[in-house]
Simulated scan of single mutants.
Amino acid sequence: MNEVISSLQVSFSLVVLLLLLLIISMFRILREYERAVVFMLGRFYRVKGPGLIIVIPVIQQMVRVDLRTVVMDVPSQDVISRDNVSVRVNAVLYFRVVDPQKAIINVEDFLSATSQLAQTTLRSVLGQHELDEMLANRDMLNADIQRILDSHTDVWGIKVANVEIKHVDLNETMIRAIARQAEAERERRAKVIHALGELEASEQLVAAAARLSQEPNALLLRYLQTLTEVAGENNSTILFPLPIELLNHLSGLTSSKTQQ
């Protein structure tokens, strides 16, 4: 009789222990940035959290989903631009889960799916642009890639916040070609600036000549000023031409005095 009672006590203790373990396992704690997608008998039940939640063992299953922003490094991709230049481009992707139900039910692995989609989108978008646009208009390309990714991942409950192209790697031959092109561009700008300077100088000289031709005495004063500047340079010999206009002016002064 005592043995039967002892076995019953042991069995009861085991049952109580199992019930306690079962009750304890029902309680789950989720952090502020976590949500739980709960399934009941294989069917979607509801999204719970954060804080303390209850999940009935065996009947209900829970999948944790992190709502924080994920920073994903997109591997380097070989891209051929529209002007047939081969480059290697890598980028970084910022996204987060905004709908845990879609992220778990509509796609098997949303992290892997987003990574693969980012790689293919990066190749397709950059392949439609020339190399100069890749190097100079990165903000526009980032916005295009972000818009395309966001539209495709919306059915997965994912919001793409930003896309940044980090590096555009070129081979040595293309780097030398770009350097030669930049040097030629700088020489072209230098010649254009020099020509514009010559044009402005000629316009000013024409204006000065027109102004001096209106008053002969102004030409004489300018000539004397030039002589003064040359004489101040401590030269032992000074050779200067006599302009015909000055001789005509002097002869006109002499003839006027003779008439008087």
Rank of each mutant, 00 (worst) to 15 (best):
M1G: 12
N2H: 15
I5S: 13
S6L: 15
S13V: 13
L14V: 07
L17R: 07
L19H: 05
L20G: 13
S25T: 01
M26S: 10
M26G: 13
M26H: 06
R28Y: 12
I29C: 07
E32W: 06
R35C: 09
A36H: 04
A36P: 03
V37C: 01
F39Q: 03
F39K: 05
M40P: 01
L41Y: 15
L41C: 10
G42R: 04
Y45G: 00
R46Y: 03
K48E: 11
G49S: 01
P50I: 01
P50N: 01
G51C: 09
I53W: 07
I53Y: 02
V55G: 07
P57I: 00
V58M: 13
V58Q: 05
Q60S: 04
Q61C: 04
Q61H: 10
V63Y: 14
V65W: 00
V65N: 02
L67S: 01
V74A: 01
D78C: 02
V79E: 03
I80W: 03
R82N: 08
R88Y: 09
R88L: 11
A91S: 10
V92W: 03
Y94T: 00
Y94H: 04
F95T: 06
V97A: 03
V97T: 00
D99F: 00
D99G: 00
D99C: 00
K102W: 04
E108K: 15
E108N: 11
L111F: 14
S112Q: 15
S112D: 15
A113W: 03
A113N: 05
A113S: 10
S115L: 14
L117Q: 04
A118V: 01
Q119T: 04
Q119C: 07
Q119E: 08
T121Y: 00
T121F: 02
S124H: 02
V125Y: 03
G127K: 02
Q128C: 08
Q128S: 14
H129V: 06
H129Q: 06
E133Y: 05
N142Y: 00
N142M: 04
A143W: 09
D144S: 11
I145A: 06
Q146P: 08
Q146D: 07
Q146L: 10
I148V: 13
L149T: 09
S151A: 14
H152G: 04
I158G: 05
I158W: 00
A161Q: 15
N162Y: 12
I165V: 12
K166W: 01
K166C: 05
E183N: 05
A184C: 03
R186D: 11
E187I: 07
E187A: 07
A190Y: 10
V192E: 15
H194S: 09
A195V: 09
A195E: 15
A201C: 05
S202H: 10
E203L: 10
E203K: 08
Q204F: 07
A207W: 04
A207P: 02
A208R: 11
A209L: 14
L212R: 05
S213T: 08
Q214C: 08
Q214V: 14
P216V: 02
N217W: 15
L220K: 12
L220W: 11
R222S: 11
Q225C: 09
L227H: 04
T228F: 13
T228A: 14
E229D: 12
A231Q: 10
S236N: 11
P241L: 00
E245L: 05
N248Q: 11
S251A: 14
L253K: 13
S256R: 11
T258E: 08
Q259E: 12
Q259K: 12
